[in-house]
């Protein structure tokens, strides 16, 4: 008798996405951002990004003892994201140590991709900031020279420390800053691709950017609200870091809470803290709260009756 009925366990609906395809999509989304970084900061940006990605992939390959260098692509994404948060030309060993820390301590120690509590790239950055603040956040911001691939560059105060850039420059990215955070335009183009592919949800960036805008508005009017969104790492953090699937909540309400929390911590650090930028620690802090948020916002099962406490 021919078997017509196939009985199998769930899941019955399969998506064509796998980890590698998602990671490749993220790399594609980061491409305009990376291009913009090279366009603005020249060969230095390219070197920083290459070191970060190669070291991250090598670390992952060594820890997993896998011959496949690219693997599932997550190490490449982590490396590139880490490079995006760094100034254009830190010493090579700072970039390399950041990548090793991001992969080894940020991810593999927890059991690899999917088990990490904190965003690996941000763990790498946080360790670098605390250890070698002078190379990461001191007097390191190069004034960009568009098309100047090998041009000499001078350092300048970052727009978050000086509050002197015009909104138009901030949008295009022709301001000093970390590789991936200067150009709002490139970040938005990249994020549109991720939205289109369905890899990120509007709630986290929405909550994050919304709160930053509102608190900026309160602190200094409409233009200050926009300034706080466009300057520094808010867009990069909100669109590419906070939306990391592993380290953000899965429930819809949870995502909003998560985004709002990131925004509040970021703005509190920016306005009242001793550091000019708070995106890193805002996201890391909310990463730590993610399991709690998920637990608190569990949706009610259909037909479930809430037990009364009386």
């Amino acid at each position: 008798m021919e078997r017509k009925l196939v009985v199998s366990s769930s899941p019955h609906l399969k998506s064509p996405d796998d980890i590698q395809s998602i990671m490749v999509d993220v790399l594609v989304a980061l491409f305009p951002v990376a291009l913009m970084a090279v366009f603005l900061f020249g060969y230095r940006a390219l070197i920083t990004m290459i070191i970060a990605m190669v070291v991250a992939m090598a670390t992952e390959a060594i820890i997993l003892r896998k011959g496949n260098f690219f693997g599932d692509g997550s190490a490449a994404v982590t490396g590139l994201l880490l490079a995006m948060t760094l100034p254009p030309a830190p010493p090579w060993w700072v970039v390399a140590i950041g990548s090793v820390v991001a992969i080894a301590i940020g991810k593999q120690i927890y059991g690899g991709l999917g088990n990490n509590i904190f965003n690996p790239a941000l763990v790498g950055r946080a360790v670098l900031v605390v250890s070698w603040g002078g190379h990461i956040a001191g007097n390191v911001w190069l004034k960009p020279v568009p098309f100047g691939f090998t041009a000499d560059m001078v350092t300048q105060a970052s727009p978050l420390a000086a509050y002197n850039a015009s909104l138009g420059d901030l949008f295009l990215g022709t301001v000093p800053g970390s590789l991936g955070e200067t150009s709002a335009l490139a970040l938005i183009i990249g994020a549109i691709w991720l939205f289109y592919r369905g890899h990120i949800d509007w709630r986290i960036p929405g909550g994050f950017i919304g709160v930053v805008f509102i608190l900026g508005l309160i602190s200094g009017g409409f233009s200050m609200g926009l300034y706080h969104i466009l300057a520094g790492g808010v867009l990069l953090g909100a669109l590419f870091m906070a939306t990391d699937m592993v380290t953000s909540p899965v429930t819809a309400t949870g995502k909003i809470i998560f985004g709002v929390g990131c925004g509040v911590v970021t703005m509190v650090i920016r306005l009242f803290g001793s550091l000019p930028e708070g995106v890193t620690f805002g996201i890391l802090l909310m990463n730590g709260l993610t399991p709690l948020i998920d637990n608190l916002t569990l949706p009610k099962k259909f037909g479930e009756v809430k037990k009364s406490n009386a």
Binding site: I97, V127, V130, S131, W132, G133
Partner: peptide, 9 residues
Amino acid sequence: FEPMGILAT
């Protein structure tokens, strides 16, 4: 050598 400051914290 530039010490890794985080280890002292």
